[in-house]
Design a protein around this nucleic acid. Sequence first.
DNA 1: TAAGTGATCTCT
DNA 2: GAGATCACTTAA
Length: 179
Amino acid sequence: MNTHQIHTPLGAVFFDRPAQEVAEELLGKFLIREKNSVQYAFMITDVEAYEGLKDKASHAHRGRTKRNEPMFGSPGIWYVYFVYGMHWLLNIVTGNEGHPGAVLIRGIQHVSGPAKLTKFLTISSKENKMQATPENKLWIGDRNIYIPKKIIKKVPRVGVGYAGPVWAKKPYRYVVKEC
DNA sequence: TAAGTGATCTCT
DNA sequence: GAGATCACTTAA
């Protein structure tokens, strides 16, 4: 394909860092989906970080299983899993191979809610473990937009009460404030 | 506020 | 193999 590339695709270098750092910087980046040779780009506005084995809210905290295996994989692959019998959730894997970490993409402009997002972009198990690259028709691009720290809200993650008071309260959800 | 829905994980 | 749980959404 010979499309004019206005976004720089983000790769392993960007994602091989702590999930909290990647999460915050993902705000203002673009989630890009290609359908029928057309690229659709949406600015990321809401994310959550899941970092390391110690994070009790993370799927990885009980160690490696078949389900959470992608979290232990190389930075910049997708971790897509099924919950509540009906929803797919999209995560990008962070940290080096063997170190479990991921950022849940909760919202893009005009689509709030992690399960609505995957439905809207037709994301499911097919994307699990795939590299986030243009070739795979689902990736994250940088259009060099700067989100001022002032308008980033840091709040507790959603639906993680089971993690206990300490981990449930960590402000690992990053949201771009509405203006 | 509660139900829907099924894969996954943790016990027996 | 059984039972509980779950990074959610929608309708009431």
